[in-house]
């Protein structure tokens, strides 16, 4: 278990070293990412400028949801965001090289890039979260702290699994990046807002099909001490880690299946 992490660190370390060869461009990217992500948050504020509540949610509560989703998504993006460029590997056949090495191909794809500049977005989420947590006056008990600890890793795994399943499509379409983006970047956007304001079919879709409701919504209900407006039992709030494990299992099976359909490229 530890050894792959060490190898991943070496792979990623190498990527970071090569990014630092272009220092100026790196710095500009980092600052740009940090600033641009505030525009997202601005959208939340614009909504509340016009309405005072979204369903049962007040502005600070939505900001809490927003901040959690942002951090989780930014960290996922940092770890595996380069899956966006993955279809290129399929198209030009460079995926071949990963297949002749004695490691899982998914592991190698994940270790093939690491854009440190994406930390900018996570930093922005952290700032919003720190502010909101201070403003919300949450009674921090053992259960809430435990939830706080598990929710970000669970969210990363769920986001990541959706991303991986979407990327599997590239094995057939050799492209299809935009379709995947609808679920990844789109999913991030959805999970910044309370699920209960959505229409029933979309809500079900997010709870049962693409389990993004478990990314932030249910854990946030628990931490904020809000009753579920949809009347689901309290236990559902704690399902995120299990859903994360399940999503990862589905992603891993889908990936294996997809790799067996790899067609390589001529030459």
């Amino acid at each position: 278990m530890v050894e792959p992490v060490l190898v991943w660190r070496r792979l990623v370390g190498a990527q970071i070293r090569s990014q630092f060869q272009y220092r100026l461009s790196f710095t500009i990217d980092l600052i740009g990412n940090f600033l641009i992500s505030f525009i997202d948050f601005l959208a939340v504020l614009v909504i509340f400028h016009n309405v005072t509540q979204l369903g049962t949610w007040r502005v600070r509560e939505v900001a809490f949801l927003y901040a959690f989703s942002s951090i989780s998504f930014a960290l996922t993006d940092l770890l595996i965001g380069h899956l966006d460029q993955f279809p290129q590997k399929i198209r030009d056949g460079t995926f071949d090289i990963l297949l002749v090495r004695p490691r899982s191909t998914l592991f190698q794809v994940i270790g093939s890039d690491f854009q440190l500049r994406r930390l900018g977005k996570a930093t922005q989420g952290a700032i919003v979260l720190a502010y909101v947590v201070g403003a919300l006056d949450i009674p921090w008990d053992a259960g809430r702290v435990a939830m706080l600890i598990v929710m970000v890793p669970s969210a990363i795994v769920i986001f990541g699994s959706v991303w991986v399943v979407g990327s599997c499509l590239a094995f057939w379409t050799t492209d299809g990046g935009e379709f995947t983006n609808a679920f990844t970047y789109g999913g991030n956007f959805m999970s910044q807002y309370p699920v209960d304001i959505l229409s029933t079919w979309l809500r079900r879709f997010l709870a049962y099909v693409v389990p993004l409701a478990f990314v932030c919504y249910f854990p946030a209900l628990y931490i904020l001490g809000k009753p579920d407006p949809l009347g689901l039992p309290r236990a559902v709030d704690f399902l995120s880690p299990l859903v994360a494990v399940g999503a990862a299992a589905v992603a891993s099976v889908a990936w294996r299946f997809a790799v067996r359909h790899y067609r390589s490229a001529g030459g």
Partner: peptide, 23 residues
Amino acid sequence: QRVQLWWDLPLLDSFELLRHIYK
């Protein structure tokens, strides 16, 4: 016709990485 070395890194770094990938 396919590059398996790390494009932006010194040659020796690629060997180091492969050493760990292959244990």
